[in-house]
């Protein structure tokens, strides 16, 4: 009798402990956000680093979910005066990491009025993303905001590039005009 009661008490304690641990771990999870929400703190830091710093690249630093949010975003600033680039990785409104980029990355400055990552992802999904995910067992991998390098035929456009990856198929790239939300082109590679 005693041997039966002890394991059942232990089981109850284990279940309660597991529930508490799960609740705490959920509370510790950083809140994901769309790309624009991290700009303000990154800009303040960039201006203290170089007064002429301009934003040239935005990329998710942690996994994206299906609504276009990520728990951490990276913001790359370029200073024409010093010809150096510095990245700020932002999570929960704080700069988690700041470091200089060991590459000359003199990309053009992003336009100010770009759509946020959630709306860009909706456009990509409608374009070809959803079909790729379903047909090739693919998943959303990366979202990049830049101007020039991902769409050289119209280098003045600020564009979102949404990258889908699949295990047994070439990746899908969807380039979206970051001002209108229109899909400009897609390619596999």
């Amino acid at each position: 009798m005693r041997t039966d009661r002890f394991p059942s008490t232990l089981r109850v304690l284990l279940v309660v402990g597991a529930l508490l641990a799960a609740r705490n771990s959920a509370a510790d999870e950083p809140v994901p956000f769309e790309a624009r929400a991290g700009i303000a703190v990154a800009r303040v830091a960039a201006q203290s680093w170089a007064p002429d710093a301009v934003l040239v690249w935005v990329e998710n630093d942690e996994e994206m979910d299906s609504t276009g949010v990520s728990a951490r975003w990276g913001y790359l600033y370029y200073s024409p005066a010093t010809e150096r680039a510095r990245v700020y990785s932002v999570r929960e409104g704080k700069i988690l990491l700041a470091e200089n980029l060991d590459l000359k990355f003199d990309a053009p400055q992003l336009a100010d009025d770009w759509i946020d990552s959630g709306r860009a992802l909706v456009a990509a999904e409608t374009g070809a993303g959803a079909e790729f995910r379903n047909g090739s067992q693919g998943h959303l991998r990366t979202m990049i905001l830049t101007r020039g390098p991902m769409h050289v035929t119209e280098p003045d456009r600020t564009t979102w590039t949404v990258v889908y990856a699949a295990e047994h198929a070439p990746s899908l790239f969807v380039v979206i005009d970051a001002q209108s939300g229109k899909v400009l082109r897609t390619w596999r590679g």
Partner: peptide, 22 residues
């Protein structure tokens, strides 16, 4: 240690070439 701008670093040569082309 945190990793940042993974895509940019993985494709640095391609992106640098694109910037030179621009």
């Amino acid at each position: 240690k945190y990793v940042t701008l993974r895509f940019l670093r993985e494709n640095r040569d391609f992106l640098r070439a694109r910037l030179d082309l621009l």
